[in-house]
């Protein structure tokens, strides 16, 4: 059993490496993405500077923290696939054309297979699309980034959990194609929801009252807001940090579990399209 688990880990690692290399194969697309993220970073950073000059300490951040929020979130944007572009469109297309049959007969777990492929993609996009915009932002703006390596490690752990939550949400989106056959409608709704509820548009900490309480416990918060707060040191003490990571882990497990339920319903009841 132990040996088996080990070999399976090797398989999913190979799938992840393949996911990484697939995206690395398209250099021009990556360069275009880097340019877009950097340009957006400048626009949003200028907007935030105006906003925080008017309302200092908005959402509990000083201006340096707000700017760090902008640039780090820009460098995470592609990896988290908040604007789409992950695996979900591909899986939806495979369901529509019936190519999903090829995935289904493989002696591997469908969800883990695509999770591995998506984490491989995210790893590439974190490096390929994330580093340059962050460095560009740091050169031009005074970003309040921590010097403590432990904080960065916790941040990376939190990013990983956020990526799993992002995957799990998009897995549900991808599976919707078993019933809808065309995913473009739900994908659009999902992009709008995830851009707003992740904190991409504005940090979730700026929203007051019950609405603010609500958006901070939704799963999208686990994708972007929580990792950024871990990095910016908004959690007082280790216990608070672990609580934040636990919040992410709970959402990851709940959503992955929901995905498995939907998946078994989909494969049991719905016709594999085509042929």
């Amino acid at each position: 059993m132990h040996l088996r688990t080990g070999r399976r880990a090797g398989l999913y690692l190979a799938v992840a490496v393949g996911g990484f290399r697939r995206y690395a194969a398209y250099g021009v697309a990556t360069a275009a993405g880097v340019f877009t993220n950097t340009a957006f970073g400048f626009i949003v950073a200028c907007t935030y500077m105006a906003l925080w000059a008017e309302r200092p300490g908005l959402g509990g951040y000083d201006q340096g923290q707000a700017l760090a929020f902008v640039w780090v979130s820009q460098s995470m944007l592609a990896a988290c696939a908040l604007l789409g572009g992950g695996f979900q469109e591909e899986v939806q297309e495979r369901i529509r054309t019936g190519d999903i049959a090829v995935d289904l007969y493989r002696p591997a777990d469908l969800q883990l297979w695509w999770l591995a492929a998506d984490l491989g993609r995210a790893a590439f996009q974190l490096l390929g699309r994330g580093l340059v915009p962050l460095v560009a932002g740091a050169l031009v703006f005074p970003l309040a980034l921590p010097a403590d390596p432990v904080r960065w490690l916790l941040f990376l752990g939190s990013v990983l959990l956020g990526l799993v939550v992002s995957f799990a949400l998009r897995w549900l989106l991808a599976l919707s194609a078993f019933w809808l056959l065309d995913g473009s409608g739900v994908n659009l709704v999902a992009v709008v929801a995830s851009v707003f509820f992740s904190g991409m548009l504005l940090p979730l900490t700026v929203f007051p009252g019950g609405f603010g309480e609500l958006v901070r416990v939704l799963p999208w918060a686990a994708i972007l807001q929580v990792p950024l707060d871990v990095l910016l040191g908004r959690h007082a003490g280790a216990a608070e940090v672990w609580r934040a990571l636990g919040f992410q882990a709970v959402w990851a497990l709940l959503l992955l579990g929901a995905g498995r339920l939907v998946q078994s319903a989909a494969t049991r009841k719905v016709v594999v399209q085509g042929g």
Binding site: R22, A101, R106
Partner: peptide, 11 residues
């Protein structure tokens, strides 16, 4: 499956 592929498209 003649009309589908199990191969990794981009690699």
């Amino acid at each position: 499956f003649g009309q589908r592929t199990t191969l990794w498209w981009d690699l």
